[in-house]
Design a protein around this nucleic acid. Sequence first.
RNA 1: GGUCCCGUGGUGAAGUCUGGAGUUCACGCCGGCCUGUCAAGCCGGAGGUCGCGGGUUCAAGUCCCGUCGGGACCGCCA
Length: 700
Amino acid sequence: MRRRGRVRSARCERRRVRGRHHRGRSGAGRHHRDAAGGSRRRSCLREPEHEEPDEGSRSQRCRLRRDHRVDRARCLHRRDPSVAIRHRADHRRPGRPRRHHPESPVMSTPALPDPALPDPASATSMRTHRCGDLRREQIGETVSLCGWVGRRREHGEHLAFVDLRDHSGITQCVVDNDVDVRSEYVVRITGVVRDRPAGTVNESLPTGEIEVGECTVEVLRRADPPPFPIDARADGVDENIRLQYRYLDLRRERMQRNLRIRAAVNSAVRTAMERQGFVEIETPMLVPSTPEGAREFLVPSRKEPGSFYALPQSPQLFKQLLMVAGVDRYYQMARCLRDEDLRADRQYEFMQMDMEMSFVTQDDVLDAVSESVLAAAEAATGERPPPIERITWLEAMNRFGVDKPDMRFAMELTELTDVFASTEFKAFAGAGSIKGIRVPGGADQYGRNQLDKLTDRAKSLGAKGLVWLKVTDGGFDSPVAKFLSDAEAADVRTRLEAETGDLLLVVADEWATTCEVLGTLRNDLGRPPVHEGPYRYVWVVEFPLFVGIDRDSGRPKPGHHPFTTPHPDDVDKIESDPMAVRSIAYDLVLNGWELGSGSIRIHEPELQRRVFTALGISEDEAARKFGFFLNPFDYGAPPHGGFAFGLDRLVAILAGEENIREVIAFPKTQSGADPMTNSPVSADPKQLSELGLKVLPPAT
RNA sequence: GGUCCCGUGGUGAAGUCUGGAGUUCACGCCGGCCUGUCAAGCCGGAGGUCGCGGGUUCAAGUCCCGUCGGGACCGCCA
């Protein structure tokens, strides 16, 4: 009872302390943000009423997200991509003794630990094992674990189960004294590994056969209750709150796993590139602004007020100059920055595996990149994908309507132009291209309302309209059925292999529009979540050299960039039929996500001149805009080509995530803000004056 | 620049269409009970300026306008 009294008083005191602490913490948080200064939007964020998280996601989205999470977990369990990462200890040779002297110094982890050796990341001066390490082999050993207190299950004064958690997993510790430990306290627990009593094994935990008993608990740091549970339930928490407390979000298994998949991918990519003789070379972050491409982040120069650096949107020009420099094979895990609007698959800053090689053809580049991507996939999933297939851009457009086809599902575009060659139906007559897709069993799933929405969607994508046909036993249920001849109706049915109950969607327009609209609808209606089904890697090759006409200048726009080599078979057409010229440019696509792109570059001045001319760029303009880049070629540029793929996207898909923010430790929101650091913040007037800058009042 | 969805105790939701007292549910938190639990259980309690501002109304979480914040998408991303 004496002890209980102590506990009570300790808790009472804690309650008092906690009350003050809470207020103090909130105040401190505001103070911190106040110190950062900011615009009206940010000062609004700092208001007390905004201090507490107050934004919740809506039911449907959340339910979907939760369901998705469950499915994903199942799926991952099935494919088992992360076991090697999560439970590296499993790979230890049984019987090999573990080091468990608290004094044992442990040096830094090698980049590629030999899985056959004891994991050097395990023991430290303070612990003998990580929380996910212990198995039946350790029974009888006295161990020390360090970590955060997860769930506690108290059964009166002499028995409490504490789930001790670190990045590696959870171990149940049986505490029979009354130390006051609460959620997320940082503790060190020393005790003896023992068998769990019969019937109490937890099969859902890798450590579930054992527990640590006779525990001595040292509280290393008390902690306030977290704003959300540090487990899978936080998947449903508003992302803004997760980002505000990212350091807590990252404690969760899912996020730890994602960080480690990312590290494994990085490591595998580096190894694969180095094995192939590529040299990692860093290129500058402060670079000149380049005339073409994405909007750049500008960095003002202090030494030269009024002049600016740009942050690189890619190391493109440097890597090509490295080829001129005779490096032969370059690669870099390159941070790239683009000031364009953010999306689920786009952040301001992102990582690319950037590479370039000399004296090569397309096959050499594709082989080298494939090796690196497949090695990364194997590292993350434990399974090496089959060789990557190739299709041409034209085939991708015709069959899937997009240049980044998701080939995990069918619903391919079907050619119908010839069916309606002499149609009476005005909407189809004279259309450049008519194609359709079949939504199996879609007739019942799509009511009038949804079909109207699909039509709106098609129109917003540039189509003049959308024809829908519900397949019935005798024919079509459709507003346009009466305009189709019997022969046309029969042909449509046969071509699309339509069966009763299907929904058919038909678009008639210019070829590009028809493809694009149906390709988008195909994705809208048929695309599975990114983590489902097989991984379908595909090289899309033979991109057109020019795509579309620039609205402002009236010139053709380069499909990849203006230094891309035209396809040798099409070089003759650069002047006569530029839009028909293919290029040696290629994209790598995974499950409908563009992972990256590359090309064989032009290294001959004459060909470059012809392409510039086709692009409407005069010699003067070329010299002015690209001289700094192309003049070095005159000192001897080797034939070369390269590629870059986005690591964030690759990791996201391999981790089963729909959003690259989930595989970035500290991402930005869609508006480009970081709720944790509250960036961006307004600049100190002194900084501005040093840089010779003045902020204009907001235009109204 | 545009379209759409969403802001309700610490967290997630219901309530909003059809205005009538801050109502409800789950988790968490605080206290009590509890010796084999494992997202423990039982009992009790605290906690909200319904994002913010304006309007309509006798009356607004609910209707209208604006605004801030989050998300998805179009434009943009050579």
